[in-house]
């Protein structure tokens, strides 16, 4: 649905976006992740035909952003960082204006207005002035305007910025609900948001692409090996940690066992192994057969936060060593 090829944006003196390439399949939610000033907004602005790229190109919904911008614009919805609302307009009036701009008219327009009002829960403020709405409502009106013409691709620039936790959850649910019908690119610097809503992540830092993969792959890739967390409890109020550790190490495929914490008769172990060589059933059996209780057994997923820091750090470390070498 979106195919980006070596997209570059240079401003006087600085390179905001540096040769980014990636593809997004139809119906996916993609998280566009990066620290502030990484080039997320600039990339989105180029893909929405607001800014022309300095080099490279991209196709959105099958049309080239440079050759056929009008065709691209017909098929995209865009919610910029600050919702583009006119404070002197009423909600319904504004949605009608945007709908007409996007080429809707008549009964279809009325139908779509009712639909997006319901979908984005702004029906109760239809006759209110946009300038008097709270931030949460403005954001939802912004989202309603982005989907009014049922676009194939949606670009949302930090859609949850400035909302309270309840609104953030509602907005995320709304976005998740929109997937399937629409391909969604969502920029953010909030990591849990990506973990919760997105299937695929594109991480950029200082204008460069750092990683692009599915959330799950990225987590295991960052770790290299597979690891699980096991919580074991003793039956009669006491637990010999070294004994458990020894027992677990004997299970085939297990590399290293570390006791992470111990509270009374319970202990949490992190078990590392080579990828695909450890059977979790073996672990469970080993614990239970030795007369302990198995309280919990779960994959020790690395949070995206850690991956993100790891990736962006190694990137800047690499450039620093390169700098030193050139000196």
């Amino acid at each position: 649905m979106i195919s980006v090829k070596e997209l570059t944006k240079r401003y006087a003196g600085i390179i905001a976006v540096n040769q980014i390439s990636f593809d997004v399949a139809k119906g996916q939610i993609v998280g566009f992740l990066g620290p502030n000033g990484a080039g997320k907004t600039t990339t989105m602005r180029m893909l929405t035909c607001f800014l022309p790229p300095s080099a490279g190109t991209a196709t959105v919904a099958g049309f080239d952003i440079l050759e056929q911008p009008i065709e691209v614009k017909k098929r995209i919805g865009y919610l910029p960082e600050t919702p583009p609302i006119y404070p002197e307009m009423e909600t319904a009036e504004y949605l009608k204006f945007v709908g007409k701009l996007k080429g809707l008219s008549g009964a279809e327009l009325r139908k779509r207005i009712d639909y997006v009002c319901e979908r984005c829960a702004v029906g109760d403020v239809k006759t209110k002035l946009l300038g008097k709405l709270s931030k949460g409502y403005r954001q939802r009106v912004g989202l309603a305007q982005a989907i009014i013409h049922n676009p194939e691709v949606l670009f949302l620039d930090e859609p949850t910025a400035g909302l309270d936790p309840k609104q953030i959850n509602e907005t995320r649910d709304l976005i998740k609900g929109l997937a399937g019908d629409h391909t969604i690119v969502l920029s953010t610097h909030i990591l849990p948001e990506v973990e919760q809503t997105c299937e695929q992540v594109i991480i950029i830092n200082q204008g460069k692409l750092v990683a692009t993969d599915s959330v799950r792959n990225l987590q295991s890739r960052a770790r290299g090996a597979e690891s699980v967390l096991v919580e074991v409890a003793g039956r009669n109020g006491s637990l010999e940690v070294p004994a458990v550790q020894r027992k677990l190490e004997q299970v085939s495929g297990v590399g290293r066992v570390v006791c992470k914490q111990q509270v009374d008769s319970r202990a949490l172990f992190e078990i590392e192994s080579q990828k695909g060589r450890m059977a979790r059933g073996d672990l469970a059996r080993a614990v239970v057969e030795s007369g302990w209780d198995l309280n919990e057994l779960r994959p020790a997923a690395m949070s995206l936060e850690e991956i993100f820091l790891q990736l962006t750090k190694s990137e800047s470390a690499a450039t620093e060593t390169a700098k030193k070498e050139s000196e």
């Binding site: 602005r45 929405t48 035909c49 607001f50 009008i70 065709e71 614009k73 017909k74 995209i76 865009y78 910029p80 960082e81 600050t82 583009p84 609302i85 006119y86 404070p87 945007v98 701009l101 996007k102 080429g103 305007q145």
Partner: peptide, 14 residues
């Protein structure tokens, strides 16, 4: 100033 120019510029209109 208000950023609504982004709405106009990303709509299918010349």
């Amino acid at each position: 100033r208000t950023g609504t120019i982004e709405l106009l510029a990303t709509s299918p209109i010349r």
